Simulated assay, not measured.
Amino acid sequence: MDTKKVWFVTGASKGLGLTLVKRLLADGHSVAATSRSLSDLQNAISEENSMFLPLEVDLINEDSIEEAVSKTIRKFGKIDVTVNNAGYGQLGTLEETTDQEGRQNFDTNVFGSLNIIRKVMPYLRKQNSGLIINIASIGGLTGDFAGWGIYCATKFAVVGFTEALAAEVKEFGVHATVVYPGYFRTYFLTGGSLRTPKNEIEEYTLARQLQVVHEKEINGNQPGDPEKAALALIKLSEMQNPPVHLVLGSDAFQIAGNKLNALQNEISDFKTLSNSTDY
């Protein structure tokens, strides 16, 4: 039985997306990969490969996405795995972050993924199979990062709509998984993947300190190996019943455990008040 799949991966010109695409092609899978810049994508993956379809896509333009999905279907005949990986980090406290900065982060990290889902689902429903992997962040489970509020909010949204999606599509034999990566050694903390607020307020010393820690100390020293993350995603795609939630990285696993324990304790501490509102 042929175990090779057709993958549709967004944000594929760098970081985890690029690592995943290279691994998939090396393993003989068919890959449609998207980026805002076709040249960036072609430069990152230069070899000629009949199993590779590079696509320039604007994630907030539904026509652009529909065209890319249609090209993928025409070339490969189907889509087995969709990976919503494209996104960037917006730094800044909630007071500092402008309306435009916040909306732009939501456009890419949230509405871009929803646009992809809306365009691939008709094909997945028709074929009665498929897996949608939405890449969130451990910051989608805990927002306890001063100066990362908008970014965490986008990733919390990814978690919420993935849970709903999993419930909605299971009757069609389609699965959905939200992935919570910890810190992986990519270029996420540098360049265009991380944006700082235009209007910094000096009184927010904790947020500034955490920003410096990410840019100067964590960057380049992340414990996660992108190659192993790619292998984990491939293993996920091979599962008959993949989980709705998948934490990636020992750091993320520890943070998730701490958050769940703290949440359980806090909820239990106020049980009396919680139950006091019933008739």
Rank of each mutant, 00 (worst) to 15 (best):
M1F: 05
K5P: 03
S13F: 01
G17F: 06
T19G: 05
L20H: 10
L20R: 09
V21K: 02
V31L: 04
A32G: 08
T34W: 04
R36E: 04
D40I: 00
N49M: 12
V57P: 00
A68N: 09
V69L: 13
N85M: 06
Y88W: 10
L94M: 14
G102N: 13
V110K: 04
G112M: 01
S113V: 02
N115F: 13
N115I: 06
K119I: 04
V120T: 14
P122T: 13
L124F: 15
K126T: 10
N128A: 09
I135T: 02
I138H: 04
A146Q: 09
A146K: 06
G147N: 07
T154N: 07
E163A: 07
E171G: 04
G173S: 10
A176S: 04
A176L: 01
Y180V: 00
G182Y: 11
T186Y: 01
F188P: 01
L189V: 08
G192D: 08
S193M: 11
S193W: 09
T196F: 14
P197W: 15
K198Q: 14
E203K: 15
Y204W: 14
T205F: 14
A207R: 08
E217S: 15
L233Y: 05
I234H: 01
K235G: 06
E238R: 06
Q240R: 09
N241Y: 08
L248W: 02
A256T: 06
N258M: 13
K259W: 08
F270K: 14
